[in-house]
């Protein structure tokens, strides 16, 4: 554990909680892509199956349980509790175009051709693109609530901090996991455009709206 990984995990946790609180307090999931949230629930489920087989640390297990629990709670709020506020018409990204290629890639490129390992690889690849339906929704409506942009910023920050974590681990532990690193870099790049808008608009007190 190093400082980048810890702050990365906490930033990830902050993102998840910000989103849950936004939906709960406003009693609305307007502007939130349910499809992205389903993808994240699939990501956590397929990656954290090792909860049942491998114990790493109390911290590790607790965070996994919290991530999975929050992911399902978010999906429940969007599709059940506050379904009436879900903006399905704008959430029109075709997820099969992500899930199918990612599944194929996980079978082809992995560390070990075993069930658990392929699921882990699938979750890594899927996470790198899971935010696309959300970014697509924002580009379609041309705007995002400020609280939604804070959520996205924390999520992007988590990925960026994990890259610093990998640099750290490479230098001090000789550790590197090419699959995680490549997918993590791809994921971070997807946020770059958003980071730019966040810094130039949201941090200056303006609402995030895209030119028509």
């Amino acid at each position: 554990m190093n400082i980048f990984r810890l702050t990365g995990d906490l930033s990830h946790l902050a993102a998840i909680i910000i989103l849950l609180l936004k939906i709960w307090k406003s009693r609305s999931c307007a502007g939130i892509s349910g499809k992205s949230q389903i993808l994240f629930a699939i990501v956590f489920t397929t990656r954290y199956l090792d909860l049942l087989s491998t114990f790493i640390s109390l911290y590790n297990s607790c965070m996994k349980v919290i991530y999975i629990g929050c992911a399902y709670a978010t999906v429940y709020m969007i599709y059940m509790k506050f379904r009436a506020t879900y903006d399905g018409n704008h959430d029109s990204f075709r997820v099969e175009f992500l899930v199918v290629p990612v599944g194929g890639l996980a079978v082809l490129i992995n560390h070990d051709f075993s069930f658990m390992e392929i699921l882990w690889t699938f979750s890594i690849y899927l996470e790198s693109v899971a935010i696309l339906p959300q970014l697509f929704m924002i580009s379609k409506t041309g705007e995002a609530e400020t609280i939604t942009t804070h959520y996205l910023f924390c999520l992007g920050l988590y990925r960026a901090l994990y890259i610093f974590n990998w640099v750290w681990r490479f230098y001090f532990e000789g550790f590197f996991d090419l699959i995680a690193i490549v997918a993590g870099v791809v994921q971070t790049i997807l946020y770059c455009d958003f980071f730019y808008l966040y810094v130039t608009k949201v941090l200056k007190g303006k609402k995030l709206s895209l030119p028509a």
């Binding site: 990656r47 090792d50 491998t54 790493i56 560390h111 070990d112 658990m116 994990y162 995680a180």
Partner: peptide
């Protein structure tokens, strides 16, 4: 051999 690669990150 459940976890041959050893994924310790979240």
């Amino acid at each position: 051999s459940q976890d041959p690669v050893g994924h310790d990150e979240l």
